[in-house]
Amino acid sequence: MRQDIIHDPAKISWILNQCNILHLGLTNDHGAYVVPVHYGFTQQNDGSFVLYIHGTGDGEKAAALDSGKAIGFEVDHGHENLVYTPPSPTEFNPSFMSVIGNGLPERITDSQKKANALKAIIHHYVAKSPVAIIPDEVKDINVWQIKVSNITARVSSPTKSWQQALHLNQPLNRGKHYDENGGLLYDDFADQPVDNDSEDSDASTGASTTKD
C-alpha cells in the first residue's frame, strides 16, 4: 500500500479549498469521458463530504448525473512549482496536490437546499456572495449534490508552505526550481537566488533560464 495517500478529512478539506476545477468522470453510450466544472463542498459531522455542482438540465452531463450511477471525480492544484533533482535526467517533476474519489450524484429539488448548495459553490471562490441568494429565485437552476463514498488525497513534491499546512513528514524535494515558463526560479544547492533575466541555460536539460 502506498505510504503517501492522505485519508485525513481535515487535510483533504484543506486541499479541496486550494483547488478550483472539479473533473467529473462520467459515462454514456459512447464510453467514459471527463467534464470540468466549478464546485463547492461541505463537510459533514462524521467527516464525510458532499460536493455541489450546477449546470444545464438537458445535456449529456445532466443525463449522467441523473442516471443514479456512481461517478468519479478529481481535483488538482499547484503544478507551477517544477523541481529538477540532478543528476538523474528523469527527475523533473511538478509539485502537485490532488483529491480523487467517487460518489452518488443526486439532483437537488428543494429550493432551500438548492440555495445552500449555490452558496457553497460561490463561497468556494469568493468570501462573500455579491448578491443575496433567495430560495424562490433559484428554483429553476439545476443543481446536484454528490454524496462522496470514497475520497483520498495525495501531495507530490510539496512546497514548504504545503508541508507546514498539512503537517507532512515527507521531505522537500531539493534541486532546481522552475516556473511554468521554464525559467529557473532558484537552486537549492546555490548560495543565492538565480537572476531570471540571464541568458544562462541548464546544461542537464537544455532549458533556458530566461523567462518569456
Rank of each mutant, 00 (worst) to 15 (best):
D187Q: 10
H167T: 14
Y178K: 05
T152Q: 06
D187S: 06
H177V: 14
K160T: 07
G175I: 08
G183C: 11
V155R: 02
L166D: 03
K176Y: 08
L166S: 05
D187W: 04
T159E: 08
H177M: 01
L172C: 08
G183M: 07
Q170S: 08
G175V: 06
Y186D: 04
K160P: 06
V155G: 03
E180I: 13
G183Y: 01
D187H: 09
Q163N: 10
E180A: 15
R174M: 14
L168H: 01
L166V: 07
Q170C: 01
D191Q: 14
P158G: 06
N181K: 08
Q170T: 11
N169H: 10
Q163P: 06
N173H: 03
T152M: 09
N173T: 12
D179C: 08
P171I: 00
W162Q: 09
W162D: 02
I151M: 08
L185M: 15
H177F: 07
S157I: 01
K160E: 15
N181E: 08
G183Q: 05
K176I: 14
G183S: 14
T159R: 10
P158W: 02
Q170Y: 01
Y178R: 10
N181R: 11
H167A: 15
P193M: 03
L168M: 13
Y178C: 11
Y178M: 13
T152W: 04
E180D: 02
D187F: 06
E180L: 11
E180C: 00
R154K: 15
N169Y: 00
Y178S: 07
H177S: 03
E180M: 03
H177T: 04
R154P: 02
F189D: 14
G175Q: 07
W162T: 01
K160N: 09
K160A: 15
L166W: 07
R154T: 13
D187N: 14
H177A: 00
I151G: 04
P171E: 12
N169P: 02
Q192N: 11
Q163C: 06
L166H: 06
D191F: 01
T152A: 12
K176M: 12
E180P: 06
L184I: 12
S156Y: 02
R174D: 10
Q192P: 00
L166P: 11
G182P: 13
Q192F: 11
V155A: 03
Y186R: 10
G175C: 08
P193W: 00
L168T: 06
R154M: 09
D179T: 03
L185V: 15
R174S: 06
N169A: 11
D188L: 00
T159C: 04
P171S: 09
K160M: 13
Q163A: 13
S156L: 12
Q164N: 13
R174H: 05
P193D: 04
N150P: 01
Q163L: 05
F189T: 10
A153V: 06
R154E: 09
L172Y: 05
L168F: 05
P193I: 00
K176F: 09
Q163S: 15
P171H: 03
A165G: 09
P193L: 01
Q192D: 05
T152R: 12
N173Q: 05
D187I: 13
N173I: 02
S157W: 04
A190H: 14
G182L: 05
D191R: 13
F189M: 04
